[in-house]
Amino acid sequence: MEWVVETRELSKFYNGVKAVEKLNLRIREGEIYGLLGPNGAGKTTTILMLLGLTEPTSGRALVYGYNSTTEPLKVKRITGYLPENVGFYEDLTARETLRYIARLNGIPDKESSSKIDEVLKSVGLSEVSEREVGKFSRGMTQRLGIATVLIKHPKFVILDEPTTGIDPEGASHILDLIVKMSREQNITVLLSSHLLHQVQRICDRVGIVSEGHLVGEGSIEQLGREIAGKEQTFLEVQVEELMPNIANSIRKIEGVKEVRSSGNLLSIRCDRDVRRQVSKVIVDSGTLPLQIRSRDYTLEEIYIRYFQRG
C-alpha cells in the first residue's frame, strides 16, 4: 500500500458554506506531511473528517484502509490526534491525564504504568509528572499533548498547529520531538500549520490548502521550481553606481516585469532569464555590475504566490 492516508474528492459544507471542496490528499507511510494554509482554509475540517469526528458532505477519507466515516473506531485506534489549542483537565496530574487517555484506549493500568513513565521521559516531563496540569506552561501542555498521542502507540499522528503560542525554544523542542517520533517509530505524521519556517524545517512534503482546495503539493523544492517554471524569477543586481536612467533602460528589456531600486541595489522581476541583457544595459550606461544574483524562492514566497493565484 503506497498511500496510507488518502482522501477522495472530500467535501464539507457547513449549512451551505464551503469549508473543504473536492480535496484529494495522499500521504505516504513514514513521511512528515505539512498541511499549509491560512486560518479558515479548511485544514482543521479536513483533519476532523480524517478522524471521523465530522461527517463529510461527500467524498471519502481513508486511513490505513479504514473508512473514517464508517469505521471511526478503527481509525481512532491507530491515529493519535493533538488538537489545536488542546486543553487538559486542570486538576489531574500529568500522570493521571495519561492514565485516563490510556484507559479510553482500553489499555489496562498494569500495562500503561511503565509506558507512561517512558512517554513522560521522552517528552521531558518526568520531573513534573505529579504536578497538576493546570499549573503547566503552554509549552509543557503541548509536550503533554504529544505524550497523549504517543501513549496509544499510533501508526499515524495528526498535529494541528502544534507550535502556536509557544516561544521559539519550546517550538524547536516540539519539532525535534515530532521528527524523532516519526523517524524512530516510523510514524506517519500530518502536521497542519501556518508557520512556514517550521514546516520547511521538518516536512518531507507539503500540501497547500486554500479555500478548501489543495492548490499545490510536493516537496518544497518542487513547489519552488513549479512556481519558477510557470511564472517568474527575481534578480538582485548590485551596481557600482546607480545611474539615473538604468532602471528605465532595464524596463525596456523584453521579459522584465518590474524594476525597483534602492541605494545601488536593483531588484528585477522577470519571466525569463535576462541576466545577459541586464549586464549589457548596465555596462552601456557607464557603470559596472558588481553582483548579479537570481534569488531562490523561499516557502514564504511560494505560499504567497499560491494564494495570489488561488
Binding site: L53, L73, K76, Y81, G87, F88, G106, T148
Partner: peptide, 14 residues
C-alpha cells in the same frame, strides 16, 4: 471551553 472535547473524542470511544 477547556479544549478537552476533541482530545477525548479522538480516542477510540463512541
Amino acid at each position: 471551553s477547556r479544549g478537552t472535547m476533541s482530545l477525548v473524542l479522538s480516542q477510540p470511544i463512541f
